[in-house]
Amino acid sequence: MRYLNHQIILKRRTDGLPCAGDFSLGEQWIDGCGAGEVLVRNYYLSVDPAQKGWMGSAVNYASAVVGQPMRALAVGEVLVSQAEGFSVGDFVVGWLGWQEYACVTTDKIQTKVDPTVAPLRYALGALGLNGLTAYIALNDILSPDPEDTVLVSTAAGGVGSIVGQLAKRRGCHIVGLTSSDAKARLCCCEYGYDRVVNYTASDWLQQLKAACPNGVDRYFDMVGGWITDEVIGLMNHSGVHAQVGTAAVEGWSPVPLAPRRERAVLVKELTHKGFIAFNHEHRFDHARRHLLDMIDCGALNYREDIRDGLASAPAALVSLYEGTNTGKTLVRLVD
Rank of each mutant, 00 (worst) to 15 (best):
M1C: 12
L4N: 14
R12E: 15
T14Q: 02
C19I: 07
C19Q: 15
A20H: 12
D22S: 12
L25M: 15
E27L: 11
Q28N: 15
D31L: 12
A35L: 10
V40Q: 06
R41K: 15
S46R: 11
S46P: 09
V47R: 11
P49V: 08
M55N: 09
G56Y: 03
S57D: 06
A58Y: 13
R71M: 15
L73R: 10
Q82N: 15
G85P: 00
V88C: 05
V88E: 10
V92F: 01
G97R: 13
E100F: 03
E100A: 04
Y101G: 01
D107N: 14
D107G: 05
D107Q: 09
T111L: 13
P115F: 13
A118V: 07
P119Y: 12
R121G: 00
Y122D: 14
L124A: 09
L124P: 04
G125W: 12
G125P: 05
L127H: 01
G128V: 10
T133K: 01
S143Y: 12
L151M: 04
S153C: 02
T154R: 01
V159C: 02
S161F: 02
K168C: 04
R169N: 06
R170G: 01
H173S: 10
I174G: 03
G176H: 07
K183I: 06
A184N: 07
R185D: 14
C187N: 09
C189G: 13
C189F: 11
Y191H: 14
V197P: 00
A201E: 12
S202Y: 03
L205M: 13
L208E: 05
K209L: 09
C212V: 08
P213Y: 08
R218Y: 08
M222K: 01
G224F: 03
G224N: 06
I232D: 00
G233D: 01
M235C: 04
G239F: 09
H241P: 08
A242W: 07
A247Y: 01
V249S: 03
V255D: 11
P256K: 04
P256N: 08
E262R: 14
L270I: 04
H272S: 15
H272V: 15
G274H: 07
A277F: 11
F278E: 08
E281S: 13
R283S: 13
D285H: 11
D285A: 15
H286D: 11
R289N: 10
L291W: 02
L292K: 05
L300D: 00
D308T: 12
D308P: 02
G309P: 12
S312T: 13
A313I: 03
A316C: 07
A316N: 06
A316M: 02
Y321S: 02
T326W: 10
T326D: 09
K328Y: 04
T329G: 05
L330A: 07
V331S: 10
R332Y: 08
